[in-house]
Amino acid sequence: MSQSLAPALAIRETRSESRFVTAARRLLHHRAGMCGLTVILVIVICAAFAPWLAPYDPAEIDYDAMIAPPSWLHPLGTDEIGRDILSRVIFGARVSLQIVFVAIVLSLLVGGAIGLASGYVGGRTDNVLMRLMDGLLAFPLLVLALGVIAVLGPDLINAIIALAVVNVPGFARLVRGQVLSVRERDFVQAARATGAGHLRIMVVHVWPSVAGNVIVYASLRASAVLITESSLAFLGLGATPPTPTWGQMLATAMEYWSAWWMSIFPGLAIFFAALAFNFFGDGLRDALDVRIGE
């Protein structure tokens, strides 16, 4: 009998761990999520150490090898003016990741703040903010991004702003919906009874219950941002030419059908990066989507 009691007692003795630690442990056991994370890490490392990893400077022109197929000298071939594709894909990771990261963080902060205020304050504030978001949502993603760039002018910073603006309504609506249910929970009333102000209640008491979902959504949106960025670059509205981005490389490759290596490799980079963000987002969702306690 005493043996059968032992495991039960052991459970009572486990150390208290925060939700973050529990989620991290769950994520470690999620196969697809870990695959995604690994690929993301590889891309991050490529981006961080690009000057050391890339065999050539991305702007360096090899006059002896223009539109050259993959070879020992240029493992992924060269483009129309003799630049090394591998080096450009590696350096492209830098720009693409920066764009994705900055755009997502911006839209999370702005959309999150709008959603939090809208859901918590309610009433007219909620109505005005949400109709504004609905207005933005009414445009197709790419059209809205094009519109923002048309207003601001085409360059990398403006492309990032456009990508952030496009994603704000999604974050705002997600956060608002969650806040509407969380603000009715008893612990919010209890926080008011301890004298906490509205800002403190929103940030300290309501936000953590919403944050899990928002992070999952952010990682899923990252792949969409990556693809939209590529589309913008493809249309010539992203980074300006000497800066290599994957979308821009694809755009150029369009004109050189027979040089398959010019389009395949940046295309694969976009494909794997987008897939990785999606897998990672799924993993996070499974890791965080738990009911606390009973």
Partner: peptide
């Protein structure tokens, strides 16, 4: 002035120690 609520299960925030 302080207050204790009826439901100890739901009146504590699950995300803070």
């Amino acid at each position: 002035v302080a207050m204790i609520f009826q439901e100890p299960m739901t009146s504590l925030n699950p995300v803070h120690s």
